[in-house]
Design a protein around this nucleic acid. Structure first.
Lengths: 221, 221
DNA sequence: AATGCAGAAATTATCTATAATTTTCACTCA
DNA sequence: TGAGTGAAAATTATAGATAATTTCTGCATT
């Protein structure tokens, strides 16, 4: 953890981002700068800068003079993020493919296995993210990768909101198919599978606070 | 102009973004918060927030304790932005197509004509941006649209850097082909043309300060 | 001439204070 | 009972001041 390297504003934004993604802070709830400042033992100036970062990542929305609140989301946004991820990850994979080494693919396979063994959402999400990052990073397109990172953060948020606690282990066939295609040098097939994989939207009945049951949606890939 | 509505930080970031895009501030040059604060007659707190916004748009980069500088760019970045635009605008168009009305397509045709008549880069860019915005906005995907907006800002920057002054009028056949396909309800053909159109990278010899000639590249679509 | 090293100047990051705005909530009056 | 009203409290936005860091500059040394 390079906390001492970062500026206070960055540290705050990372911590808040983590809480928003994990669902520790409810969507729609207000982020009050003085409260946050007090908690982190700082003034509110770095807090405001942290808010601007969260805003840019799409994790918070700010209305002038009325403060900042945690961004809420709906099924439409889940779909939107899924489609953006599909389009951009396919693009990244096409450029990354020529630079993929056997070692990278082996690491990606390890990540897939780790995901299959995961007993909770959080560790599954981490393994999944590692897989995607491993096969996409070699595309060497920083702007593309950072946009994809933001989309992954949004995905994780949807995921944690839907699968708050229960998580059933499952074997990720898509990841294996992608790796196998990449090993055979079949980039187009890998890209097509990745595009489908990322757009798969899981659906799960969830009990609301009022005791009713509704469906929760999330990107599971 | 809703300047009075906006917060000072937003106003500053818009003005600085405009200068960076137009090339009024050189890539790589430093943005000094006190100087900017003095120019806008404010303290540096809103200036710092404006910097965070520019950073998020990819127009500036900040290193902790060493300040903010205008992002520089190279051919690789031009390519990257072109490919991202292609992927995302195609996605947006596919979703927008069912909601396009004759009126919107007529407005888009007007924008194309305005672009063809433009005698300088700046007005051509504005007309071009209007065209793309018109046919994409109905997709109703706010996150996607705002990402595309940022990419258009980057495109404009490349464009102004390459075509600083000289600009030859040209007839945009791609725009017309896209409109014609859309009018016939042939979304796939329109999307394919748009994807190619946006990835077209113009090339132009440019005289550098040192009197030498080098090639400048920009997205011309 | 090139290199390295103070010390000074400039600049960034943060804190404390103040002004302006919005939200809350008790209270009046229909 | 309930809608409207108007302070009071809370909160945001900005300003001014301070501490910490970096960059610059000139001079001594090799």
């Amino acid at each position: 953890m390079a906390s001492t390297e970062d500026t206070i504003a960055v540290r705050i934004s990372k911590e808040l981002a983590d809480r928003i993604i994990s669902g520790a802070i409810e969507p729609g709830s207000r982020l009050r700068q003085d409260h946050v400042a007090e908690e982190f033992n700082t003034s509110h100036v770095p807090v405001r800068e942290a808010f601007r970062r969260l805003e840019a990542q799409g994790l918070a929305i700010s209305e002038p003079r009325r403060g900042v609140r945690v961004a809420s989301f709906d099924l439409g946004e889940v779909r939107e993020v899924a489609e953006m991820r599909a389009a951009l990850e396919v693009l990244a994979l096409r450029h990354a493919a020529p630079h993929l080494t056997a070692s990278i693919l082996d690491q990606a396979e390890e990540a897939t296995k780790a995901g299959d063994k995961s007993r909770d959402v959080r560790s599954w999400e981490e393994a999944n993210r590692t897989f995607h990052r491993l096969i996409l990073t070699p595309c060497n397109m920083p702007r593309l990768l950072s946009t994809i990172d933001d989309l992954h953060a949004a995905s994780a948020r949807f995921l944690f909101a839907a699968w708050r606690s229960e998580w059933e282990t499952r074997t990720d066939q898509d990841h294996r198919a992608i790796l196998s295609a990449l090993r055979q040098g079949n980039t187009e097939s890998a890209a097509a599978t990745l595009g489908r994989h990322v757009q798969w939207i899981g659906q799960k009945p969830v009990k609301t606070a009022s005791g009713r049951t509704r469906d929760a949606f999330a990107i599971v890939g």
